[in-house]
């Protein structure tokens, strides 16, 4: 998946969780800043991303997942490491 694809997948997940399919979410936004977002959705998002990309977040990362862009980079990094055969 391209970095853009990753960002798009995260964006769609966020929209799914909020049930607002057409919502424009800027990549510099933290999900927690969105109207209607909750700590509950934050957990759900983390778990859904782990499933979708077959990755694990560390406890530190779970603490603050950052903006959509930062989240996409984090996932990209993890995917890259997996492709390199490193955990």
């Amino acid at each position: 998946m391209t970095p853009d694809g990753t960002l798009e997948t995260i964006r769609n997940l966020v929209c799914d969780l909020l049930e607002e399919p057409g919502l424009r979410v800027e990549s510099a936004t933290k999900p927690s800043e969105l109207r209607g977002w909750s700590s509950l959705l934050q957990v759900t998002l983390a778990v859904a991303l782990q499933n979708t990309f077959q990755i694990r977040f560390t406890l530190h990362e779970l603490d603050d997942l950052g903006t959509l862009q930062e989240l996409a980079s984090l996932i990209e990094q993890k995917l890259h490491r997996t492709r390199q055969g490193r955990p």
């Binding site: 700590s39 957990v43 759900t44 778990v47 499933n51 694990r56 977040f57 560390t58 406890l59 779970l62 603490d63």
Partner: peptide, 14 residues
């Protein structure tokens, strides 16, 4: 364990 330590869930979300 991660979900318990981070969010206090006694079972995995799944």
């Amino acid at each position: 364990p991660a979900l318990f330590y981070a969010y206090g869930y006694a079972l995995d979300l799944q």
